[in-house]
């Protein structure tokens, strides 16, 4: 099967000026994307996974023609990036991160209608499509109010609706559930699932791995501008099959963490804190074999252990295993 999106060695380098004195400044290169290569096939939900600042949004902006890549090439729906820009734009329905991109002084319906017109959809089918979206997303109560009166979640929903107005074969969604409450997020994922069932290809960006596990067929983990893992969700998990994951909860000083990482038989380890308690995730080929050393290393270094448990591999563990960091970390280059 021919991929509907092909990305080859896509690279984006930003130049930022750093002040080094009153008048002098230095140009600093920031690599936002480092040679991304991937294929996305028609009809699949493809997850772009990674922490904030990993480069997901940069990749999406390049693919949607908002940003010009520094190097590399991409084809979407058979059209080449930078050469067939308008054809690419017509092939994509896109929702960018956040609740922006709507005219505050227009009503929800007027926004949908206006953007529909920009995609050259004649008035009658445009109205039909808008009505369909309004019904699908339950926007009926708010759609005739100006957007400035919407809550953040309502704006997100309308922004999502706007991405559907051109009924494009490819749907690109950048963290669409970011500011939604749990029920609304669930509702949105259901709609995405349904749209995919109807044949649309969906590129779905998230930093919540549970969301990706629920929705995506395949995915790519992106970290610091690079693809660090690529495959179906089961494949990604299976890549850790030889290894096991152990979670330790309690009070874990930095010295204890370093001691665990230095242990023979530990592939990688990451420390995060949640609700005041700390959680240490250890990936090791044979967790049982290293358990005694592990407990020793922790206790000797002043750790207070509350719970040690082997767990099922999650996508988050895959990320930890590959990068040694948790997803909660913000890796934006300042």
């Amino acid at each position: 099967m021919e991929p509907i999106i092909q990305v080859r060695d896509l690279t984006k380098v930003y130049q930022s000026k750093e002040r080094s004195g009153l008048l002098s400044s230095r140009v600093k290169n920031v690599d936002a994307l480092k040679g991304i290569t991937l294929d996305i096939f028609p009809g699949e939900v493809f997850g772009l996974l990674g922490p904030n600042g990993a480069g997901k949004t940069t990749l999406i902006k390049c693919l949607t023609t908002l940003l010009l890549p520094t190097r590399g090439a991409a084809w979407i729906n058979g059209y080449q990036l930078e050469r067939d820009e308008n054809a690419i734009r017509a092939s994509i329905g896109c929702m960018l991160m956040g609740d922006r991109g709507l005219y505050w002084k227009l009503t929800g319906r007027e926004n949908l209608d206006f953007f529909g017109a920009l995609y050259q959809i004649p008035p009658a089918p445009r109205k039909k499509q808008a009505d369909k979206i309004i019904e699908m997303l339950n926007l009926g109560d708010i759609v005739d109010r100006t957007v400035e009166t919407y809550s953040s979640g309502q704006k997100m929903k309308l922004a999502f609706g706007k991405a559907l107005i051109n009924d494009a074969p490819v749907l690109i969604l950048d963290e669409p559930t970011n500011t939604l409450d749990l029920p609304s997020a669930r509702e949105l994922r259901t709609v995405v699932h349904d749209l995919n069932e109807q044949g649309r290809t969906v590129v779905y960006t998230t930093h919540q791995m549970s969301e990706a596990e629920e929705l995506c067929d395949r995915g790519a983990s992106i970290d610091r501008g690079e693809v660090i893992a690529l495959g179906t969700i089961p494949e990604l998990k299976a890549s850790l099959n030889r290894e096991g994951v152990t979670k330790v909860e309690g009070v874990i000083p930095a010295t204890a963490f370093r001691a665990v990482r230095a242990l023979d038989g530990v592939a990688s380890a990451a420390l995060s804190s949640k609700d005041g308690a700390q959680e240490l995730v250890i990936v090791a080929p044979n967790p049982r074999a290293i358990l005694p050393q592990l407990i020793h290393a922790l206790m000797d270094n002043g750790a207070v252990l509350e719970q040690i448990s082997p767990t099922e591999v999650t996508l988050e563990d895959v990320f930890i295993a590959k990068t040694g960091r948790t997803l909660a970390e913000d890796t934006r280059v300042k």
Binding site: Y79, A87, Q120
Partner: peptide, 27 residues
């Protein structure tokens, strides 16, 4: 599906990229 098929399929769903003056005027 080949690229050509995709392009054909797309032409049914997405508007033509080869916009004419009339369409631009409507916009």
């Amino acid at each position: 599906m080949t690229n050509e098929q995709i392009a054909n399929d797309k032409s049914q769903r997405a508007p033509s990229p080869f916009v004419n003056f009339h369409l631009q005027f409507v916009i």
